[in-house]
Design a protein around this nucleic acid. Structure first.
Ligand code: ZN
Ligand code: ZN
Ligand code: ZN
Ligand code: ZN
Lengths: 129, 129
DNA sequence: ATTTTTTCGCAACTGTGTTGCATTAATTAT
DNA sequence: ATAATTAATGCAACACAGTTGCGAAAAAAT
């Protein structure tokens, strides 16, 4: 029944910083590469899980099936998260960015109840264009 | 320079049949389960690759990162494929279905060039609702 | 029937992600 | 400040989707 308290550790702060200053969605290998052995592989996964649980980040599955994590920016924590924005994967530089303002409209057929949405598109980003 | 000719094999026909009569998007493990050891695991992957190449099926990445394949229905082979329809994953029965007629509209910010799109949503399907 | 080309099965491998457990570090209580 | 408590970490081992190399088998072409 006890609430698990949030603890601030070196690994967590470091990983959060990497995500913040990258501004893009990163996978565990990408984070690992940038952190130059600050902590174990497994710890990265566990920290990301915690950040996800605590609502600091959200995750997205790429077209390659790889899970990436990005800092939550455009979501209102008080009124529930909004993670139905589009994620863009650049074929050239490989970066995955949150297009926070692009929220597609769609009308589901009768009978379908929507809970979670994931819009992933790929192409060429403005920098590589 | 030689065109690789299309060959009809037992495994291929069987897998195509499974996909056709299921009507949903299936993963290799799901196909394997239904085929009761008709062929090897690797063969399933290779057949699916071929069917994909030949334009008979398209693939979609689930929220679980799993690749699933579905028969192409609503795509015009002559005028290029249209695989930008929505895929729906039911949280209850686990089925992944093509919502061929649901094609979300979105306007990308200036500078982004779109090539591929993947819209994956989850919730409860009409049958399980 | 023989040759050619594609497909198959098997084994081995890669890479992401997970789990158990003993150790370490952060928070809380004394 | 010290001890007790609780959560986080590292390591090894595991699970499992997906891939690759290669010799054997099966199609299609001759
Ligand atoms: Zn780019
Ligand atoms: Zn995002
Ligand atoms: Zn269902
Ligand atoms: Zn589909």
């Amino acid at each position: 029944m006890k609430e698990k308290q949030v603890r601030s550790t070196a690994a967590k702060q470091h990983i959060r910083e990497i995500l913040e200053q990258s501004g893009t969605a990163l996978s565990q290998p990408e984070i690992q590469e940038q952190s130059e052995g600050v902590c174990d592989r497994v710890t990265v996964y566990r920290v990301l899980d915690r950040l996800l649980q605590e609502g600091e980040v959200h995750k997205t599955i790429g077209l390659d099936g790889m899970t990436r994590y990005a800092i939550c920016k455009a979501c209102d924590h008080d009124h529930g998260h909004q993670h139905d924005h589009v994620h863009f994967s650049c074929e050239v530089c490989g970066e995955v960015t949150c297009l926070d303002k692009v929220i597609p409209e769609l009308k589901l057929p009768r009978g379908y109840r929507l809970k979670e949405a994931s819009y992933m598109i790929s192409g060429v980003c403005p920098t590589c264009n």
